[in-house]
């Protein structure tokens, strides 16, 4: 069974970039274009990892992360937040909500998959 990663970003180009990069590494991608859809799909499909943009229509990435952490069935799913804001406060809020890591946009595709692999590796351990 392949590793499934949910990717949520409202910007279609960025979403496509993430999906392309991760698919290239052999991961199965679940796609969402906003926070509400992302939360619904994660609850339904229980992916191995969620890569969430912070600023999205509807629920923000941080709100989705918090919802996941509060739910027993999804609390174990690690979340990688992507933030276009370099503001410390937002990053702190993100980490405080339960995300295991974050990446500041713009990022290099290679940095993304290296980070994803590290998280998955830790999870397996």
């Amino acid at each position: 069974m392949t590793v499934r990663i949910l990717v949520a970003d409202d910007d279609p180009f960025v979403r496509r970039l993430i999906i392309f990069t991760l698919k290239k590494r052999g991961y199965t991608i679940l796609e969402a274009t906003d926070g509400d859809a992302a939360l619904a799909r994660i609850r339904q499909e229980k992916p191995d990892l969620a890569v969430l943009d912070v600023v999205m229509p509807g629920l923000t990435g941080i709100e989705v992360t918090r919802a996941l952490a509060q739910d027993q069935t999804t609390a174990a799913i690690p979340v990688l937040l992507l933030s276009a804001s370099a503001q410390a406060a937002e990053i702190q809020a993100g980490l405080a909500s339960g995300a295991v890591s974050y990446l500041t946009k713009p990022f290099e595709p290679s940095a993304l998959w290296e980070r994803v692999e590290a998280i998955l590796q830790r999870k397996i351990e």
């Binding site: 180009f13 600023v55 276009a84 804001s85 713009p106 290099e108």
Partner: peptide, 26 residues
């Protein structure tokens, strides 16, 4: 400032990302 920063970063993410992919021969 943070809005501008955010709004600029998002398209830059695409520009840099796809250029990287192209340049990496992906």
């Amino acid at each position: 400032v943070s809005m501008v920063s955010h709004e600029l970063r998002t398209p830059l993410t695409s520009i840099k990302g796809y250029v990287d992919l192209l340049a990496a021969g992906e």
